[in-house]
Amino acid sequence: MKTLEDLKKVREQALEQMKLREGKFSAKVVVAMGTCGIAAGAREVMAAILDELDKRGISDVAVTQTGCKGLCEQEPTVDIIKNGQSVTYGYVDADKARQIIAQHVVNGNVIGDWVVSAS
């Protein structure tokens, strides 16, 4: 049974993670949340990303959203911004999202086959 009382412990856990990253983020993940993105499964992609980061104990990755970028055909899309480079992945699903976290965000290896644009 979850109650608001649990939040004291949750707060301690969060503070611990915040201390570890010392205000520095190693990467940014941006999920497109326009209507077409949501209809194509962006919410499940977001859930998979949050879960994968949590499972791996990663707290120095920022997760944000953007609206429609005009890439409606290729939704769900996810941008990874790391080491000064921005890569957009298209046709992402929960499973691909987990692999993008493991390979690109954690190990820095871009998964070329899934990239729709890079800059």
Partner: peptide
């Protein structure tokens, strides 16, 4: 939640999971 979390943002991993 914000009262209980006392300055810890809602988008921290452990908070979102909860």
């Amino acid at each position: 939640l914000k009262t209980q979390l006392d300055g810890v943002p809602l988008n921290e991993g452990p908070v979102l999971k909860w």
